[in-house]
C-alpha cells in the first residue's frame, strides 16, 4: 500500500480510474470466468434446436418465431407473470417499508420481534408450503375462518382460477422480512440532525417522513424496487411447490414454463430463447427505472 505514496506519475483522474478498475477486478474475474461463457452459450443455444439427447442443430430464428407466433403458453405465462409483478412489487416495497418503520421503534423486546418477523424468510420452503396449504384451505383454513367471523365467504384460493395468483402473492409478501431488513439498515443511515432540524422548523410526523425519511431512504427503496422487479419476473419456487402451475395453468409463470421446457420437455434451445426474451424485457424495464431514478432518488454522496 505504501507504493502509492511516491510522486504520482499519473494524473489524479487516471489514478482514480485505475483504482476503480482494480477494486472491480475480483468481481470482474468472476464475471469473465463464470458468467460470460455460460451467458454466451445460452445465447447461442437460443438459435439452436437442442433437445439434450440429440445433437444440437442450428435453426436460426425458428425458436423465436415459434415463441411469438405459435405458442399461446408463452403469452399466457408472460401474462401471469406480469400480473404477479404488477401486484406484488408495489405491495412488497410498501409492506417492507412499513414493517421496517414498525421494527425501528424502541419497544420492549424489539430484538425478539425483529427475529420473529424474519422467520418466514428462512423457513425451508417444504416446511412452509404445508403450512400455507392450511392457511389457505378454503373451508377451515386460517384466512377463510377469519373472514367468516365478519360474514365474508372467502375464495377457493389455490383451487380457484382467479384467486390462485393472489394466494401466491400473499405467500410471497409474508416473506417480506428480507426486504424489511434492508430498509431497516437503510433507516440507520438517516442522520439524526436532519430530524432535529425539521422538528425545529415545526414539521409534523408526516412531513418529517415525507421530507426527511423518504428522500434519505430513496436509494434503499430504489434498490428494493429494481431487485423486486428482476426477481418477480423470475418467480418460480412458490408456484413450483404449491401449485405446479395449476389450476388449469393459472399460475404457470414464465420461469415455470421455461423450466418445463428445459427440464421436463428437454427443449434446451427453446428454453434459452425464452430466457433471452425475458432478459431483454427486464433489462428494458430496469433501464427505464434507472432513468426515472434521477427524479426521486436522492444520493447524499452526489451532493457535494
Amino acid at each position: 500500500m505504501t507504493n502509492a505514496q511516491p510522486k504520482p506519475r499519473l494524473t489524479n483522474a487516471a489514478r482514480e480510474a485505475l483504482t476503480c478498475y482494480l477494486f472491480l477486478l475480483p468481481w470482474g474475474i468472476g464475471f469473465l470466468a463464470f458468467v460470460i461463457g455460460p451467458v454466451a452459450a445460452s445465447f447461442v443455444l437460443g438459435f439452436m434446436d437442442y433437445e439434450i439427447v440429440t445433437p444440437a442443430r442450428w435453426v436460426g430464428l425458428a425458436n423465436y418465431i415459434e415463441l411469438f407466433t405459435d405458442d399461446q403458453r408463452f403469452r399466457m405465462s408472460m401474462g401471469n407473470t406480469l400480473y404477479y409483478v404488477l401486484v406484488f412489487v408495489p405491495l412488497h416495497v410498501i409492506v417492507a417499508t412499513l414493517l421496517a418503520l414498525l421494527l425501528n421503534q424502541k419497544a420492549r423486546g424489539i430484538a425478539v420481534y425483529r427475529t420473529l418477523f424474519y422467520v418466514p424468510s428462512i423457513v425451508p420452503i417444504v416446511a412452509g408450503a404445508i403450512l400455507w396449504v392450511w392457511i389457505l384451505q378454503p373451508e377451515w383454513g386460517l384466512i377463510n375462518s377469519t373472514l367468516r367471523l365478519v360474514k365474508i365467504e372467502g375464495p377457493l384460493w389455490l383451487a380457484s382460477l382467479t384467486w390462485s395468483k393472489p394466494a401466491l402473492i400473499l405467500m410471497a409478501l409474508w416473506g417480506s422480512g428480507a426486504a424489511m431488513i434492508i430498509v431497516l439498515a437503510g433507516l440507520q443511515g438517516v442522520p439524526q440532525h436532519l430530524y432535529e432540524a425539521a422538528e425545529i422548523d415545526g414539521a409534523n410526523r408526516w412531513q418529517r417522513f415525507q421530507h426527511v425519511t423518504l428522500p434519505m431512504l430513496s436509494p434503499t427503496l430504489f434498490f428494493i424496487l429494481v431487485l423486486s422487479v428482476i426477481a418477480s419476473f423470475q418467480v418460480f419456487t412458490t408456484a413450483y411447490v404449491m401449485t405446479g402451475g395449476g389450476p388449469a395453468e393459472s399460475t404457470l409463470f414464465y420461469m415455470l414454463y421455461l423450466y418445463r421446457r428445459a427440464f421436463v420437455l428437454l427443449d434446451m434451445g427453446y428454453a434459452a430463447s425464452m430466457a433471452w426474451i425475458l432478459f431483454v424485457a427486464v433489462l428494458a424495464l430496469t433501464l427505464v427505472q434507472f432513468k426515472l431514478a434521477s427524479r426521486w432518488v436522492y444520493y447524499e454522496a452526489e451532493q457535494s
Binding site: 458468467v35 455460460p38 445460452s42 431487485l227 423450466y259 430466457a275 432478459f279
Partner: peptide
Amino acid sequence: SQMMIPYIVMLVP
C-alpha cells in the same frame, strides 16, 4: 443485468 439471466438456463454450460 447479470441478475436478469435466469440461472437455470446457465446450469448446463
